[in-house]
């Protein structure tokens, strides 16, 4: 792609129920608020429930062609089956973000990409919100990549979460911040 053009794509993958779709939605919505072109493409496993789920987010400064991505710049994987599926696809010098609470970092094999592990479930549990591991992952991922402003993610929560869950927005914000802080505190 042209060098003056911003173009980045991510695959977010995990078990159904791990909240990977919310991560993708928030990234896409935040980038849209910041004036970028975005596509968000969900793919559900064949099993109706409890199967694997993944989504692809493309963010660009220009109109986006394919919402389908063969070789992503980054993959955020929340479980082992997703690691096995997506690690081989990442572009050279791309980013592999793994949830080291459920994936042993030694399971990875690529030497030509950056591998970044964050134990998101442990962090979430330590902070008293075990259900928000996905938000911890999002905060950490975004701190690492600086794809969008943190504040855009916070604003997006209101648009992305169903109204029934709006009372949970403050705790979601907190979880995103905790994920970001964890990355900041790394040497």
């Amino acid at each position: 792609m042209n060098s003056d053009r911003f173009y980045y794509n991510i695959i977010v993958a995990g078990f159904g129920g791990q909240g990977v779709m919310v991560i993708g939605n928030l990234l896409a919505n935040a980038a849209m608020i910041e004036g970028k072109y975005v596509t968000y493409l969900p793919v559900y496993g064949v099993e109706m429930r409890g199967g694997t789920a993944n989504c692809t987010v493309v963010i660009s400064s220009q109109q986006i062609g394919s919402p389908v991505v063969g070789k992503p710049h980054a993959a955020l994987v929340m479980n082992l089956p997703s690691l096995i599926k997506y690690e081989p696809l990442i572009l050279p010098s791309g980013l592999l973000f793994i949830n080291s609470s459920l994936i042993e970092p030694k399971e990875t094999y690529r030497k030509d990409i950056e591998i970044f592990s964050v134990p998101v479930n442990e962090i979430a549990i330590d902070n008293g919100s075990p259900k928000l591991a996905n938000m911890v992952a999002l905060g950490a991922f975004n701190q690492k990549t600086k794809l969008v402003q943190m504040n855009s993610l916070f604003v997006s929560l209101e648009k992305v979460l169903d109204e029934r869950y709006h009372h949970l927005i403050p705790s979601n914000i907190k979880a995103i911040e905790i994920g970001a802080k964890f990355v900041q505190s790394l040497p």
Binding site: A28, Y37, T39, Y40, P42, P67
Partner: peptide, 9 residues
């Protein structure tokens, strides 16, 4: 399903 399920601005 691709165009139907995809989200965009």
């Amino acid at each position: 399903a691709l165009i139907g399920q995809m989200k965009e601005p």
